[in-house]
Amino acid sequence: MRNFGSIKRNALSSVAVASSLTLAASVAAIGTAHAAVKVTITGTVSCAKFDESTPKTVTITPKKGTPGSDEPAGEEKVEKYTIKLTGIPSTGTTATAKVVCEDSDGDTNTYKTKDFPVKKPASGGPVTFNLPA
């Protein structure tokens, strides 16, 4: 004669294992759907609003992700910059850009551009963002 209690227990154990595997697969799929991406931002930076100043640093700080910065090499009032950000959510985020301008006496002025959108374009190429925006 069969012990129906042990058959019922084995069936319930199998259901529990299957449910656990299904839950783990769901969690893994959700984690993949929200994976972080790299976003490259390029553009021009201007210190024209400050007399005789040139851009020294550009820093972009996303709300979610890792900040990045660049030090334009030239001595013009308008220079090019490129910043690579990592850890940006695949759905995007907002960021703040901070520009430090320096004049020939070494005096600095700073300005910020707040809450501009950062999202990797479908093409996978860089995002263009000119400062001031």
Score class of each variant (00 low, 15 high):
S19I: 00
S20Y: 13
L21G: 06
A25W: 09
A25E: 06
S26L: 15
V27E: 01
A28K: 11
A29Y: 04
A29M: 13
G31A: 12
H34R: 12
H34L: 15
A35G: 11
V37F: 06
T40C: 09
I41C: 05
I41K: 08
I41T: 12
T42H: 05
C47F: 11
C47D: 07
C47I: 07
A48P: 01
A48V: 14
K49N: 12
F50H: 09
E52R: 12
K56A: 13
K56P: 00
V58A: 08
T59V: 14
T61P: 14
P62N: 00
K63V: 14
K63M: 06
P67D: 01
D70F: 10
E71V: 09
P72L: 12
A73N: 03
A73E: 13
G74T: 07
E76H: 10
K77R: 11
K77Y: 13
K77I: 11
K80R: 15
T82I: 05
T82P: 03
T82V: 13
I83W: 07
I88H: 00
P89F: 06
S90N: 09
T91E: 08
G92T: 04
T93Y: 01
T93Q: 03
T96S: 08
A97M: 01
V99L: 05
V99P: 02
V100H: 00
V100Y: 01
C101A: 05
E102C: 00
E102N: 03
G106A: 12
N109R: 14
K112V: 05
T113W: 01
T113K: 04
K114Y: 06
K114I: 06
D115N: 15
F116D: 07
V118F: 08
V118Y: 01
V118A: 02
V118W: 01
V118G: 00
K119Q: 08
K120E: 10
P121A: 05
P121M: 09
G124M: 08
G125Y: 04
G125I: 08
P126W: 09
V127K: 04
T128D: 14
